[in-house]
Every structure is written in C-alpha cells, then in structure tokens.
Simulated scan of single mutants.
Amino acid sequence: MTENPAKPVHLAVYDTWADWETGHTTAHLTRRGHRISTVGFAAGTPVTTMGGLRILPDLSLADLRPEDSSLLILAGAELWDSGDELAPFAAKAREFLAAGVPVAAICGATAGLAREGLLDDRPHTSAVSFYLAGQPGYAGAGQYVEADAVTAGDLITAGPTEPVAFAREVFARLGVYKPDVLDAWYRLFHDSDASAFPVLMAAEEAGDA
C-alpha cells in the first residue's frame, strides 16, 4: 500500500447521486492509501443516493478549498438533469481547475461542467455528444471525443457506462499504480481478462497493488 497522501480525494455527494459510478475509484484509492472525504452542501446533513443509501457528508462545499485537496470527483445524479441545483459543484470544479487541482466528472456531472463552460476548450467525453449539445451555453462540440474516458490536463471525463475506465484515468492521473499494473487492473475489471490476474497478484506481493 502506498503512503497515505497528505491531501484527501474529495468525493461530491448529493441527493440522487449515482453511487455505483465511483465505487471502483474510491475503493481502490482507499486500498492504495488515499483518504476519501465526502463533500455535500452541508456537513452532517444526509443525502440519499440513487441506490437508496444515506450518506453524511464530511465537509460543506463552501469550506472545500482546492489547496486542501488532491482531486475532486463529481458523479452523475438525476439532479444534474432536472435544473441548476447542483451548479455550485460545477462552480467549485472551476475553482479547482483554475488552481491546477484535477477534477474527475462522470455521467450527468459532465453536463454540469458543460453548462459552466468548462468543456468548451478542453477535450472531453460524456454519454453521447448530443447529450452535451443540448446543454445551455455549451460550445465545446469540437472538443468532444468518442472514447470511454478522456483525460485532458487536469480534467477527466467519462460516460455513465464506463466507471472502470473512469477509475483507470483517475489512477493514472494520481500515479496510483505503475503503468503495467494499471493496464492489468483495467484488463481484469473491465475485460475480465484472466491473464491480468497473475500480474496483479505479483504486484500485490511486491506492495505495488
């Protein structure tokens, strides 16, 4: 297990959050020594995920500072598509990117970033291109990439069917695994490639997985 980084990874949580989209990411970050801190509108005020789980946020969004974080994760939620209630989280993503701290957004969170104007000049992906094309103010169609997940500097994006690829990009950005181990991790969890298992077992024995 890697040494616990000084700055936690912050996971945004809000009602209707698609909890399965970040499971691979947070579970394996934790296994590798990263601390996960949840961020909601108000610390200690419960939110209910799309899967019916109740989460008590560790930190209030207003108190989250980019300099105190190693990464901000934004997952999909029905609320991203029903109005602008979650716009403050997209605004926080703008603060992070301006400060050079990475942001990872999957599914509906990409729509929130599109409305915030954060995808206009960065390569990105989402569910489908026309999903983002319908977002008010979005001018990034020329930057859209047909891929399972995309990393463009400090911004990671992925569509709703790619939680494993999303995790892969986060791990690469944070240097969680060596490249060969990351490749094996992805092949095992995404492709069910049995040949990847011995690679991961050897890496675990060596303290690299």
Rank of each mutant, 00 (worst) to 15 (best):
F166M: 04
L74H: 03
L132W: 12
D183F: 00
C107Y: 05
T157W: 13
S195I: 09
S60Q: 01
A27E: 07
E204M: 08
K7Q: 14
G33E: 02
P136Y: 07
R122D: 01
A111C: 01
L11A: 00
D191Y: 02
W185D: 03
V150A: 03
F166R: 11
P163C: 06
T26Q: 12
W185K: 05
P88I: 04
T125G: 09
P123D: 06
A111M: 15
Y177K: 12
D148R: 15
W17K: 05
S126L: 05
V128P: 11
A141T: 14
T2H: 10
A172Q: 11
A203I: 12
A42P: 14
L59R: 15
S82F: 00
G83A: 01
L56C: 11
Y177T: 02
E85W: 01
G52P: 10
L86V: 02
D63Q: 14
D68P: 06
A127R: 10
A105R: 03
Q143I: 00
T45W: 08
V39E: 05
G134H: 05
T45N: 10
I156Q: 07
A167I: 05
I73A: 06
P102M: 02
N4G: 04
V101Q: 01
D58A: 14
V9R: 07
A147G: 07
R31Y: 11
P160Y: 11
D81N: 15
A105I: 11
A139T: 14
P123A: 14
A91T: 13
E162F: 13
S195F: 14
L29V: 07
L119N: 02
D121M: 07
A12F: 10
Y144C: 12
D154S: 02
H34D: 12
H124I: 11
A87D: 15
R168C: 03
S69D: 03
D191F: 08
G51H: 00
G51P: 00
F41V: 00
E146P: 11
L11P: 06
P57A: 11
E78H: 13
T38H: 05
E78A: 09
P66W: 08
D180V: 06
E146S: 13
L11Y: 00
V181Y: 02
E169P: 06
V9P: 07
R54M: 15
A206L: 02
V39F: 04
D58I: 02
P160W: 06
A206N: 10
L86Y: 00
S69N: 03
A133I: 03
D154W: 08
G134Q: 09
A139D: 09
L200E: 00
A152W: 06
P179T: 01
A127T: 12
E85L: 09
E95T: 09
D193V: 07
T22E: 10
C107Q: 10
E95D: 15
M201K: 14
F189M: 08
A114Y: 05
A43G: 15
E169R: 14
D180S: 06
E116F: 00
G83S: 00
A133Q: 10
D193S: 09
F89K: 10
E169A: 15
A139Y: 03
G100P: 05
A104T: 04
A104K: 05
E85G: 02
G207R: 08
Q135A: 04
V164C: 01
F171L: 13
Y14N: 14
R173H: 15
V164F: 04
R94P: 04
V150Q: 12
S70Q: 08
V164S: 00
